Simulated assay, not measured.
Amino acid sequence: MAALGFAAACAWPLSGQASPCEDIDHEGLSYTVCEVDPAADDLRLFLTDENGGLYGSFQAIDRAANGEKLVFAMNAGMYHPDRRPVGQYLEEGEEVMRLVTNAGPGNFGMLPNGVFCINDNDARVIETLRYEAEAPECRYATQSGPMLVIDGELHPRFLPDSTSRNIRNGVGTTQDGDRAVFVIANQPVTFHEFGSFFRDYLELPQALYFDGNVSRLHAPGLNRSDFGFAMGPIVGVLSPVDETRPGG
């Protein structure tokens, strides 16, 4: 049930505009960090369009957004070869894929894993068994794994001396969900390094891994939009065109 692996992405340059993203160096490693205010920003998940077809790319979402543009987006959770989500997936409160609570192969099944739950005024990373017990009402939700940070502690299986490195991406949130911070590494990193960035630099108590085989970012304000083979779930922020492009 691991994600489908693809070749490394490339960057597609875009015209400059205001960006919620910035590049940050920490302990000799570079990360791009994108912070979202769930109460103010139109944060949502994207999988299928109004005709039931899979979006698969940032550009497809942009083309379908009537009068709006993506100001930020990244891949958001693991998926099968046909791009169906591996675990829990909700759009507008409708369940597309059920919650998976058992351990399994690959990073997704390296428990504890978790769910990223988005509502109109907050967004929270919630460990899967806690999510099952609380049964929160989420407008959007995507399950992935492993958890990077759980209640301020790194995942217990992360090793400081690990040699497994990948371009990784994920999301961390505050306890009450008033901030959601999305991160992608700009060079291969270990799980321990990646989780430590969320815990030690961003000081976020909960963080969730999205992927390391397919890690892509759309940040027009940084003149960046990674591309490659079609993706599964995507998380992004939409804004009216006239707010993202001067004179638009």
Rank of each mutant, 00 (worst) to 15 (best):
A3N: 07
M97K: 02
M110E: 14
C138T: 08
D161W: 00
R84A: 15
N102V: 13
F198D: 13
D49P: 09
G28F: 05
G16Q: 14
H155C: 07
I167L: 08
V86N: 13
G145P: 07
E153H: 15
L43C: 03
Q59L: 05
H26F: 09
P240E: 03
V100K: 09
G247R: 07
R124A: 05
L238I: 07
P13E: 01
A123T: 08
T174N: 14
G56H: 06
T101Y: 03
D62L: 04
L222M: 06
V125H: 11
V214L: 01
A180Y: 04
V100G: 01
S239V: 14
N121K: 14
P160L: 00
Q17N: 02
G77M: 11
D25Q: 13
S196D: 12
P38R: 04
E153R: 15
P220F: 02
L70Y: 11
A7R: 14
A60L: 08
T128S: 15
T190L: 01
H218S: 03
V241P: 02
A141T: 05
A2P: 14
E22M: 05
N186C: 00
D82C: 07
T48P: 00
D49S: 07
L202K: 05
G28Y: 10
R83G: 14
R130T: 14
L70H: 03
T190V: 12
L4I: 12
A219W: 00
V149D: 05
T128N: 14
D122G: 11
R179I: 00
V71A: 00
H80C: 12
H26R: 10
E95C: 09
S225I: 01
P85K: 02
G221Y: 05
V171D: 03
